[in-house]
Nucleic acid binder design. Structure first.
Lengths: 254, 254
DNA sequence: CGGTCCATTGATCAGATTCAAGCATTGTGG
DNA sequence: CCACAATGCTTGAATCTGATCAATGGACCG
């Protein structure tokens, strides 16, 4: 790919800092190859060796773990522009199974290709670091939802989370979004059963919070829903004040 | 502090990679100051400006968020050698409140002091990055526990998690540990009530899984408990194969 | 056209909460 | 040194949210 047309990874990261040519060059190294995957195809299987990361070009995917009794827990949803595999960087074996929830296109690249970024671009490294710790906060929000919220509140906070995530790269988006997840998948993400997800969605619709139409969903009372769940948008602003500048050189060493 | 006596931060990080003198020097910059805090004293309050991080020298602390109805959700426990505040790096305002669960000693340092590490030590940066993504996996484990496990299993997996964390820096530790958390705090961490935590602990003791004595707890059937919760130790091994080497120099740039 | 997946709905069940009371321990001020 | 308050753990009874079980119907697909 040329540096002139922005990939969705570049687009997403540009939301936080101005990317210089060197950074764009580094990021382009992550998107040299690409593969297509089918709906429900498994990308990485838990327990297998981790050697690669993936940039999502299109499609939704998710990571999950199986429980001994056959149930499962989704832990994360991936959208275009997200990078799959960071959590596994720290381990020799994958900690989750990653599966496509719809047809998708991915760019695989080896772990080792991060080396250049770490050695040559402290500022881009800081951005990746910030994204990693930002994701920790996203997990805390999920823990909070699952630990102390009712089924209704959990579903509402999931919808708001997805809405804000999609708005980063799609500023024109208002209140309607595609939701390519089954109710079973949503339940597996929020610690509920598919049955109760169905009942809760229906009640949300009856109460005028949402409007469903096929695979899309419309958020009708965003303000009320935000207040109901004490929701914070984690995708908008980022503190970049502590990032090293691009001009920093190593030869300033002690 | 001199470089000869290892701080618990250095001790903990040394578990994963050999730290060279430069790295030790960088880490020493995190422990220049130190403050004592009392039991239940609040270190950082949610919503206030984030400017500092803290290295824990002694004592246990935890991070939590309040719910509108007065309940709360703990999201993380800190032990000696842990760094407090990474998740807030990405934000201008603190996302959690951090409180001491017992008297503790902390070393505060400004965000900006990470700059040197990012610019001058790619390998140490990679280690911090690996710890950040490792923590994501810890959060996934917590999500899994709260989404798909019974109260008994959640408590068992918490006990195993703490046991393995303490064993990193205390290799002599076998099956007995101090647990300076009230049952209310444990409930707030696992999404349970203090009442049910009490009932569940009692049953675990009756069934011979644990033995309690004042503030300490003994794990009697570690193997069985590990299997019951499908527990994975996230603290033992780390994949450092992709880390840049210490000798890497920036002047290899394109 | 039959099979599969998914959403829906009702009846029943259970794990965990809520409410309430009692007891032990610790800390504090008189 | 004691009285008293505050905190934490325990236990029981009633209640409720969400799970389980089961059946139905629609949409899609080979």
């Amino acid at each position: 790919m040329t540096d002139t047309e922005d990939s969705c990874l570049v687009q997403k990261l540009s939301h936080y800092i101005e990317l210089d040519d060197l950074s764009r060059h580094h990021l382009a190294q992550f998107e040299l190859d690409q593969i297509d995957v089918q709906k429900h195809e498994i990308i990485t299987r838990i327990g297998t060796e981790t050697s690669k990361l993936y940039v999502v070009k299109s499609g939704w995917l998710y990571a999950f773990v199986d429980m001994p009794d056959g149930r499962r827990q989704l832990v994360r949803i991936f959208h275009p522009g997200d990078i799959i595999g960071f959590p596994d960087l720290a381990f020799h074996h994958a900690t989750t199974t990653v599966q496509a929830s719809e047809p998708a296109c991915l760019c695989p690249f080896p772990k080792k290709r991060l080396d250049d970024v770490f050695r040559l671009s402290p500022r881009l490294t800081a951005l990746l670091f910030a994204l990693a710790v930002r994701d920790q906060v996203i997990f805390m929000d999920l823990v909070r939802a699952m630990g102390r919220m009712s089924a209704r509140e959990r579903i509402v906070s999931l919808l708001l989370d997805i809405l804000h995530r999609l708005r980063i790269t799609n500023v024109s988006m208002t209140d309607t979004m595609r939701l390519p997840l089954s109710q079973t998948e949503i339940g597996d993400l929020l610690g509920l059963t598919n049955v109760y997800v169905s009942k809760t969605f229906r009640r949300l619709e009856e109460d005028g919070f949402i409007k469903r139409d096929g695979g899309t969903i419309r958020i009708l009372k965003e303000g009320e829903m935000t207040e109901m769940t004490d929701f914070s948008n984690r995708y908008q602003d980022m503190d970049i004040s502590w990032f090293p500048s691009y001009t920093t050189r190593l030869d300033q060493a002690l």
